[in-house]
Simulated scan of single mutants.
Amino acid sequence: MEISRYVAFSSDPAGGNPAGVVLDATGVDDATMLATAADLGYSESAFVVPADDGTVDIRYFSPLAEVPFCGHATIATAVAHAQRHGTGRLHLRTKAGPVTVTTDRAADGSVVATLVSVAPRTAPLAGADLAELLAVLGWSAGELDPALPPRVAFAGAWHPVVAAASRDRLADLDYDMDALAALMARHDWTTVDLVWRESPTTFHARNPFPPGGVVEDPATGAAAAAFGGYLRELGLVPTPATLTIHQGVDMGRPSTITVTVPAEPGTGIGVSGTAVQI
């Protein structure tokens, strides 16, 4: 395998979320993919197998397990593919369903990739589950933003969405990794999407990711897509909307994710960003 390393959602190698990218993993078995992801040590790595019908199969592995969908590794893969083969559109077959990703050149010459997620949806976050999650995080119900109610959101993977009432609460993240990993495993949650609303269309996010073997994800495209669907389904933003999500700031890897939310219910959410090879 030829393994590339990219940082997604940043033009600075010191920011964003790193991912391993294998543009041709033909014939590579699951054990080798997992071992490669573990050796790289990034939150996810992507493995692509080109198909004859113009689509590509893509799989995502954290250091500990396969995940159904990963936004930042998709952006990294699309940019890597565009640099090798030129910009355009890719049709991806993921374990979560079909995802389209388009690449274009920005004015500064960088490649910007935009993925369109599978259809998003939300589910209630049961009171007992919310209470357990808050206890593990060390948060209290009084520290939540009542305008953004807790839910579990999906756009390829499931993420509890919990909104802090203040930036200080979001900045102070200290949790029991083993306890949170056990809770997330019971519910098949991929990351926990902790957010704070700076303005009607600007948000800050942090994403604990113990199922992947990392304390925190610096940029989570799948959670950003799920969050866009959550906002639309609950009527929390006027649509169509373009949102900016800042993530990774508190861990020293600033990332910027652009989310486009179409007005039509049930349609996929757009997630855009650039990537740079490291």
Rank of each mutant, 00 (worst) to 15 (best):
G27C: 08
T26N: 02
A35I: 04
T36F: 01
L34F: 00
E44C: 13
Y42R: 05
E44Y: 06
P18L: 01
A19V: 07
A19G: 12
A37I: 13
M33Q: 13
L23Y: 00
T26F: 00
G41D: 14
D24S: 01
A37R: 09
S43E: 09
A14S: 14
D30I: 08
G41P: 11
D39A: 14
A38S: 14
E44G: 12
L34A: 15
L34T: 06
G41W: 08
V21A: 04
G27F: 06
Y42T: 12
A38Q: 11
D39Y: 05
G41K: 03
L40T: 11
S45E: 07
D39H: 12
N17C: 14
T36E: 10
A35R: 15
A38T: 10
N17K: 12
A25T: 03
P18G: 04
T32F: 02
T36A: 09
A19K: 14
G15P: 04
T36H: 04
V28C: 05
D29E: 15
Y42M: 10
P18S: 03
A25F: 02
A14Y: 02
D29N: 15
A19E: 04
D30C: 07
S45A: 14
E44H: 06
A38D: 11
A38F: 02
D30P: 00
L40K: 07
A35C: 03
G41R: 03
A37W: 04
E44M: 13
G20F: 06
A35K: 14
D30G: 09
S43L: 12
N17L: 12
A38R: 15
